[in-house]
Amino acid sequence: MNPGGWFSRRSRGAREMDTVPDGVASKCLGCDEIIFVRELERNLQVCSKCGYHHRLTSAERLAITVDPDSFVETDGDLLPDDPLEFPGYVEKASTAAASSGVREAITTGDATIEGLPCVIGVADFGFMGGSMGSVVGEKIARAFERAVERAVPIVIFSASGGARMQEGLVALMQMAKTSAAAKRASLAGVPFISVLTDPTTGGVYASYASLGDVILAEPGAVVGFAGRRVGRQDLGGHLPANFQTSEFQAEHGFVDRTVPRKEMRATLAFLLRFFAASEAREGEADGS
């Protein structure tokens, strides 16, 4: 797989609906200013005028995060089923697959970042709002288990509205499954870096995504328990301007750092080097 080639092809036209319209120029979703698509691409989909971080597809995210040609997808054969026979779910999932170009709301696999091995998961908001159903939960649980087996750190980029309504209770249980898997990996000594991107809310923010040894977030991302859909007036009194954002969560101690997109790769590499160093010492003690 070549995420680099994937990235440039897809960003030209296939998946623009969440970010920028097709064409030469488009409007920034943050400041409404006209920006050149080429410039936006060069700037990793961050507006050079206001710094707004437009959403990325999982392929785009992988392309700017992992070493070229290092990504090997795992569990790509898992597809959604319909445990509740929920009205319209099958159609909705197949439409989502067609429009997003991914088969489910998370892509997982092995990769290296600046030469450092890790297991990585990248959510794709374009597939049913990044919602966590059985497939997302299972892929995440398997990713944690794979990190335990390989004794490497795990990095997960989240972007999700929460549990997938169409899978009902089965989706709700993925919160417990992924949280338990995160805890199991933690007990086995696996470092977990959780990266919150726009948006990370509901049952994803309230499960594995909040359990990182280190929790990073992109600037300005919507991050909170309730999604923005819940009326602000219902949420009690005077709300701060940064309510339900990365910055609010960092201010209240639930996010370690907000990291601009262009610094994310270096930040991850720093942490992976830190964790790898401690692993090397353990290896020596074991005589391995």
Partner: peptide, 25 residues
């Protein structure tokens, strides 16, 4: 769970996640 300002300020999401992880073991 509450989703208001005080809930977010007191990290209701982290608390739910932590409970699931800790209860599991």
């Amino acid at each position: 769970a509450a989703a208001d300002l005080r809930a977010e300020e007191t990290g209701v999401s982290e608390a739910i996640a932590r409970n699931m992880a800790e209860f599991a073991f």
